[in-house]
Design a protein around this nucleic acid. Structure first.
Length: 221
DNA sequence: CTCCAGAAAT
DNA sequence: ATTTCGGGAG
């Protein structure tokens, strides 16, 4: 078993099942993926609620509405002018790709490339949609993943998205369910212990496996 | 590397 | 008052 698989076992044992993004619509995953870009999820929930209250929670409705009305709804998620453009582009792509049925019928790589071509959807947002919306086995790399695993010492902090993703995927079974769970565990660890500032290394479940954590402990003793 | 430009935590 | 947040484009 490789390092990434072992770290998953440690995390899962310590933090337990997380169960993320389970019972939402596929379209909501797409909307969430755009709105959560450099924004806290709490704020994204407000934006989604406001879209629902305005009866705009469908690709056709968002495209038919005045741009200013959509922008007003999603304001709580920040960067609302840019995100309105990105959300519109995502809705256009949703319809152009045949909606839920059309996208569900596409092979993973073809769907990934089609989504990457959309203005406003980068690799992380696309992989959110693939994994959480369409249950495809792609590993999502985010800021938490970079921070945690570079501190542990098993990845290069300057490595690109695709390189990091391949490191994880090469070491783990091709299983959407586990990728889902692993990413959720990473986020939880990043929020609770492996924070950007003042990480709680002393209480971290991965302390014994982490280069940064061991150095931190030695310094404080 | 800079811009984008809101809310909650610190 | 500053930083951070399920980032991406120019």
């Amino acid at each position: 078993m490789g390092a990434f698989a072992e770290l998953y076992e440690d995390l899962h044992g310590a933090l337990g099942p997380q169960a993320w993004w389970p019972a939402e619509s596929r379209f909501e995953v797409l909307v969430g993926a755009v709105l959560t870009q450099n924004a806290a999820w709490r704020n994204v929930e407000q934006a989604i609620t406001r879209l629902r209250d305005a009866a705009l929670f469908a690709p056709e409705a968002i495209l038919a509405a005045p741009v200013a009305r959509v922008a007003e709804c999603i304001r709580p998620s920040g960067y609302y002018n840019i995100k309105t453009q990105r959300l519109r582009a995502a809705c256009e792509a949703w319809l152009a790709l045949g909606g839920e049925q059309g996208m569900a019928a596409m092979p993973t790589l073809a769907l990934r490339n089609a989504l990457l071509a959309v203005h406003g959807l980068g690799p992380e947002s696309v992989d959110d949609v693939l994994l959480y919306g369409f249950e495809r086995p792609v590993f999502v790399i985010d800021a938490y993943t970079r921070r945690i695993f570079s501190r542990i010492g098993v990845v290069d902090p300057r490595a690109g998205y695709d390189t990091l993703q391949q490191q994880f995927q090469a070491d783990l079974p091709v299983d959407a369910q586990q990728f889902n769970e692993y990413h959720a565990l990473i986020v939880q660890l990043g929020k609770s212990f492996c924070r950007p500032r003042q990480p709680r290394c002393g209480d971290c479940p991965l302390l014994s496996r982490c280069a940064h954590g061991r150095a931190e402990m030695n310094q404080r003793s």
